[in-house]
Design a protein around this nucleic acid. Structure first.
Lengths: 212, 212
DNA sequence: TTATAATATTTGTCAAACAAATTAACCGTA
DNA sequence: TACGGTTAATTTGTTTGACAAATATTATAA
């Protein structure tokens, strides 16, 4: 049963003390070690590779990957897609996650990060005639916001939500006006963050997400 | 490249309009359809199976799975494990997620759900001499709490966090006293929920999670 | 029509093979 | 000794073929 082989392989990875970047033995050796054929162990290796746990350089070998929030979220999004969440459920989750981060965001914010947010806002404002680009920048802003907390778990969750949003409802913005309205909200949010106004920021986030 | 084949397969699943429970064609037919050998397409099928997107009854066939928060969270947890989050990061994430859910929890709570929470608390109280069981029930309580919101995305996130917690620090409770202290907090939280006291609940959650 | 037996599918797993790429070994030269 | 280039050995990516075991389907008999 593959499930069993997978967990054996997982504990092998952990117990053998592999660290990101370390090279694993070849497929043949691994197959022998686990008492299965190369094809069988390969199914597991490929799975973990697609999952983002391993990384393979073609024809050279397999190494333990340094997992990134981005690649991790990508795979999860597919699964959640079949979960069939509606727009409202997604919005609610986004709202909750972002609201949750507010205290930490205000606590951790540095001037450099504020500048970066500002740059994203400007860029989005400039993209008022490119809805697709504006959409990407909108999501980038919200992600950057959460990234301020320095919590990678939250970052992964936010990524998942962005991806789901992007896939299901890729056309938020239809007019330059809508884009500029969003830009305005982002600016107000940034002001609230700079002024450490927690309540104000919560209000803004809610108002910003609700009408999506 | 497998990555490409995976995304082709994914769009196939979506475009062909498969719904949970639907049976897919056999491996041979799929292999032919995608222009690869059985072994190659199998790597993708196995991956999606381990991922929880597909489900296979041995020697009978493959069907599209009805994804559950639990199985989805399980796979993600492994990935995040290699991300190497420390206890503090985990705690912060838990705190944020649970705090985020508070308004919704209070809004959505029904008497039946309150009773269920109560039952979980009683069970945990009775398990004061079985730390492992108490630990499980503790997590079950927190999960049930989030489930009240009816938001499956939040549920998945909560699951991930529970699993990470369970794996990394499986020995929260060392004494019956510690367990009863936790039980006491759960009871107070339940009271706050029943009384719709938002601020009180937030306080309790913070106090409850901080010393872990 | 229904129960049962025979047959055909389908998965799970293995072995062997080969091209293409990369890595390691070797070897002659300065 | 140190270095650069050529050759040989590994390793992956992918295919084909094979076979047992479980399951689904069909045919047959009561």
């Amino acid at each position: 049963m593959q499930n069993n082989l997978l967990s054996r392989f997982e504990t092998y990875l952990v117990e053998e003390g592999f660290k990101p970047g370390d090279k694993l033995p070849g497929e043949l050796e691994l197959a022998e070690r686990f008492g299965v054929s190369r094809g069988t162990i390969r199914e597991i290796i490929v799975h973990l590779t697609l999952q983002g746990v391993l990384q393979r350089r073609s024809k050279a070998g397999t190494v333990l990957a340094a997992p990134k929030a981005e690649t991790i979220g990508r795979e999860l999004a597919l699964q959640l897609r079949f979960l069939g969440c509606g727009r409202e459920e997604l919005k609610a989750a986004r709202l909750m996650i972002e609201s949750a981060a507010v205290p930490e965001v205000i606590r951790c914010m540095t001037p450099t990060q504020a500048d970066k947010l500002n740059a994203l806002i400007d860029e989005m404002s400039a993209a008022e005639n490119d809805p697709e680009q504006a959409d990407r920048l909108d999501l980038a802003f919200h992600l950057a916001l959460l990234k301020i907390t320095g919590n990678r778990l939250l970052e992964v969750f936010a990524h998942v939500l962005s991806l789901l949003f992007a896939r299901e409802h890729r056309t938020h913005f239809r007019s330059p006006e809508a884009i500029q309205r969003s830009v305005k909200y982002h600016r107000m949010m940034l002001e609230a963050i700079r002024g450490r106004e927690k309540e104000r920021l919560l209000e803004l986030i809610e108002e910003h997400i609700r009408p999506l």
